[in-house]
Design a protein around this nucleic acid. Structure first.
Ligand code: FES
Ligand code: FES
Lengths: 153, 153
DNA sequence: CATTTTGTAACTTATCAAGTTTCGAATAAC
DNA sequence: GTTATTCGAAACTTGATAAGTTACAAAATG
């Protein structure tokens, strides 16, 4: 099944925004992600509603961080992109008549709920700034200037 | 995202097979699941390869359990249907050049791997016969004969 | 007013589980 | 051995939806 990359993409964008001076336009960002501006706007809209980024129209406009990365967790970003379905595994029928199928659903639902809870708990523990720090460590280890952009290379 | 219901469906089928005298044809099963025989064969093929069910062709043929439900875990069935992708959440790019994106991927991958491991560990702890027992308890609580079939009602 | 840039709606594409059709091969009943 | 049944398997269509695209209105700057 094709997966949902919105969380992954938005984290990437936030980190690049952090190491950027002024605002980034949707076009800048789209170039970075290898996609197009309209999609960027669509997805960033959720982050704007959550106050994690701000947008300005017109000359010199674009997207900027709405707060420091240390004040955003992965869970915040996950929620901001619409809290998409976590699992590809699912139930054949949510409310079956069949008692047998109800037993199956109960067991699967419990197990999936538990795994989802663990995942979201972990997401809530990780600040976006932690990823930046990991990135800085990587760059240092490789002796690479941390400001690189793959799209510009 | 549309989810993958193969595990759920196959568990349902196994439980019905267990409370059945003789073999069930693909058509019987398809009627139960609200689907069609070819799809049933396609999915059950994996369980047959794992020895969890057997199939016989011709008159009086069909599908039967290959071993008791107490000797199959949810993890066994999950593997037998092809160990489908667990998560709908995914990475935008698996092997990015960008160090920033690599940091994002590392963090997400770790967290997803942890949640997947928990899920599969739980699956390995649950025997299919446990679901049957839960079903029996449900039926008793409702005062319903446990042999009911929704498709026949 | 001309230009830049977001906001938004409408539409197309890609993907893959699910669903369908079809025919061949094996088995059993007669 | 002929017929009915049933699985096996390949080839194809459908449905759902994230992603991608197009287009244009609205707002801000100079
Ligand atoms: S997209 Fe991250 S460096 Fe280019
Ligand atoms: S499908 Fe489970 S009782 Fe009918």
């Amino acid at each position: 099944m094709r997966h949902d990359g919105r969380l992954s993409r938005m984290l990437h964008v936030l980190l690049h925004m952090d190491e950027q001076q002024g605002p980034m336009t949707s076009e800048d960002i789209a170039g970075m992600l290898g996609t197009n501006p309209a999609l960027v706007r669509r997805t960033l809209a959720g982050l704007r509603d959550g106050g994690y980024v701000t947008s300005e129209r017109g000359h010199g406009g674009g997207w900027m961080l709405g707060r420091p990365l240390s004040e955003m967790t992965l869970a915040d970003v996950y929620d901001a992109v619409g809290a998409p379905e976590v699992f590809a595994l699912g139930l054949a029928d949510d409310q079956p008549q069949c008692l047998v199928e109800q037993a199956v659903n109960t067991a699967l639902r419990q197990t999936l709920d538990e795994a989802r809870a663990l995942l979201l708990r972990r997401f809530a523990e990780i600040r976006v700034s932690d990823l930046r720090d990991d990135f800085a460590a990587r760059a240092a280890a490789l002796g690479i200037h941390p400001g690189m952009r793959c799209a510009e290379a």
